[in-house]
Amino acid sequence: MNSSYLLSIITFIYGAASFCYITTWIFKKPIIGKLATITTYIGFLGHTVGIILRWVESYQMGAGHGHAPLSNMYESLVFFSWSIILLYLLIEYKYKNKSIGGVAAPLAFFALAYASLSPHIEDRISPLIPALKSNWLIIHVITCFIGYAAFAVSFGVAIMYLMKARGGEGKDSFLNQFPAVRILDRLIYQTITLGFLFLTMGIITGAVWANSAWGSYWSWDPKETWSLITWFIYATLIHSRMVRGWRGKRIALLSLIGFIAVMFTYFGVNYILPGLHSYAQ
């Protein structure tokens, strides 16, 4: 079994987990929730094995081929999905609430499904070209995608917030399963501060990498600029919350805008804008 095959199986496991988590919104049976969690843990375990397996496979391809599996669009999507699940499992453990799984698991599922099933994405392992041979690149990808994963979870929670704040608290509504709006609000902000820290580290390590490869730490290429735009948006959110005291709906909306910017930085720049970034080739 090779890693791409294993990871495409994990996609279906996450699909099943997503289904279970969403079902727990509607049917209040604890057994379904337990099933959802167990499925996610199994998926996460397999996902981790898949990443390690891919790493090993790259070394088996021949001398000079081995590299950490973080070097192209496929591998970044796999890691993005992995980070979302990791973060979600930590939140589920800490808050003892499974309803967030109904948004987090589908996000991880979509990321992995896109990686595994899209014909545009090459899942073969290819050796590194000279520019990508850098430890800074590895740290850069890890920090960026942990940051993106935190923003993704924040986006999911913001949607839950907007659903709950809008839907009111009907007696039988599935919204009762969601954490209180106060907790959702805080969770949006906490995941954003985590994402902001990692995005900052991601931008900085990217700059250090650029400086070691091309002698310029910042050259305003579209990918760099869009990551900075994303940073500005979240900095706006943080300032309006900390200093102007914005809470709730406005923060949730800003979180949505921020995540749109994240997605544009990730995909839009590659597919829509003319650019130089390595993944664009």
């Binding site: 305003w220 579209p222 600029t225 869009w226 900075l228 735009i229 500005f232 948006i233 900095a235 706006t236 300032h239 910017a261 720049v269 804008l273």
Partner: peptide, 12 residues
């Protein structure tokens, strides 16, 4: 910050 975010788009 908002102005920077919006105007930066132009150059991309």
């Amino acid at each position: 910050l908002i102005v920077l975010a919006v105007t930066s788009i132009i150059g991309t």
